[in-house]
Design a protein around this nucleic acid. Sequence first.
DNA 1: TTGTAGGCGTTATCAG
DNA 2: CTGATAACGCCTACAA
Lengths: 343, 343
Amino acid sequence: MVKIEDVARAAGVSVATVSRVLNETGRVLPDTEARVREAVARLSYEPNLSARNLRKNESRIILILAPNFSNPYYSNVLAGICDVSRNLGYSTLIYNTYDSDALDESLVESLFQKNRADGMITLACNRDDRWLESYASRYPLVQCSEYVEGAQIPHISVDNRAAARDTVSHLVSLGHRRIGIVTSANRYLSSADRLRGYRDALEEAGIDPDDSLVAYASADYSFASGKQAARTLLEAADPPSAVFCVSDILALGVIAAAGKLGLQVPWDLSVAGFDDVDYTTMFHPYLTTVAVPCYELGRGSMLMLYDHIQQKPGAQSEVYLPHKIVLRESAAQKTDRTRSNTD
Amino acid sequence: MVKIEDVARAAGVSVATVSRVLNETGRVLPDTEARVREAVARLSYEPNLSARNLRKNESRIILILAPNFSNPYYSNVLAGICDVSRNLGYSTLIYNTYDSDALDESLVESLFQKNRADGMITLACNRDDRWLESYASRYPLVQCSEYVEGAQIPHISVDNRAAARDTVSHLVSLGHRRIGIVTSANRYLSSADRLRGYRDALEEAGIDPDDSLVAYASADYSFASGKQAARTLLEAADPPSAVFCVSDILALGVIAAAGKLGLQVPWDLSVAGFDDVDYTTMFHPYLTTVAVPCYELGRGSMLMLYDHIQQKPGAQSEVYLPHKIVLRESAAQKTDRTRSNTD
DNA sequence: TTGTAGGCGTTATCAG
DNA sequence: CTGATAACGCCTACAA
């Protein structure tokens, strides 16, 4: 292993000078600098990060707490974080939290104490994880997509409530009045907000809420649970003519379940999803859904974190990226053929 | 920050003793050990990793070089690696290589020099990246899924050639004799081996190879490129009655393209994929494909790497996990209705 | 502008 | 079995 001392000797200067050149701190004569750089290159010297970190008390590492990253939503966010962090000179340590319940206080406490990282980004948490606040107050922490409701923790997300409201309003505008929702049994703020948005739209349209139109899929948005939830909705006495889902996979499950029941989307049933992941346009009917800028969310979270690490004065603490409703094939005008056109 | 010295004082012992207790090295009286552990708990002390790493010259970090992890294949592998590494006491640093060409020598060289990690796992590389061998000889490195052909680098994968041969043989057994392949334009060994396996099966069946039945999709297996490749195949003068694809996404693209051409799978065309990712059973026709144990591949690669880091004598260097062909709906008996039943 | 030297928090060697 | 102390490689006052 070649160390700074070797470089110093090779360049005929002191270690301090080498360090100054490498860290670009303090004046160094152009001539000496050149000699140092030449030596660095010739010996292909790379500073020992452990030593540097010990000395500077930083790690240049960002910790990402992510639940199952086989979900394309999270993998896109991840890609955004990784790209930005690399440009900023940070490495990304990834920690699998499986689901939001695995993100418990003892885990964060130990991660925090170990201070292996300069900051942390959480991709999922329950909306009532208030204990996170105490960490955010003494440690750079930003929440991406999911965040703790009403807490003073920097976060970046989309306006889930408005997006859901707009989507459901769109269904209303297509003539649907009996509209169901498939949400998730988790405690994510996004799930709650999307349910709220759904109710907002109903109220706006003067439609009475009906709890029998609210179905819950599994906490991890599994395709199978989406199918299951759809069955309870569609096999009821007075089934909906449209269903809004809090995730695309769930929507796909609903479409599959409908098919099994002999219902064709969108003719017999309208379906809308959320996220706009890749496979929304791999099969017909192409999914009407809400496009969430996952990659940008990832980028933004890292940028925010960086500002907080640097303690930049004007650092943002609450950012909402614009969403977009994309109209495709799975939601259509309610017709006589549509089921449950009794009202 | 509470340091080892604080613990020592609190427990009334020397730092050496605290260290011994924590690292379980050397004898310590049960009584003193208890006092130390109590102090550690009370002060909620966590050793400073930078200092420890500097001293022990290790990082307890594994570097993962992964291409676009929004591909469910890679994310499952990743999950396997992360789970095992955590159990082994390692953190996983993830480095995005975008595509295999971004994994160039200068990158690995610098990563290697920085020695931020104790070992490295590559998820993708070109089959002719022989230069990797020189790193593998002096640094713990294992290749997962993709590896350099004929190089002395520990790797774990599946037998791609045999899997492809078996799948194509299955198509043959269904009565197909004009069988196309959609492979990828990348330089992955898996693509090459699957093409070889395809040719093996043809030869075994006494079918003359026909280069016009070989179509190339983009390097990253994109859905769109699968559709495009399918068009060149299906719009030819003498189109195939069955198509074998080197990835599920590609197969989905082929099915979509077929649909656009008025061809129904499997009645007018049989299609087989590779990987068995989640959405193979989200839509009809359910995909006939090769199930690759991604998660297990990830687990296995980390286990292998661990053995190599520890320089365990009998460490494995070449492992192939069993695959399984899963028969579903997209491939069926060739009938008169099937296109190109001229032969 | 450059060099010297102390210390970051641990572990490991050596005495006791 | 335990304690004192010298590294590990780097950065940064402080001096020159």
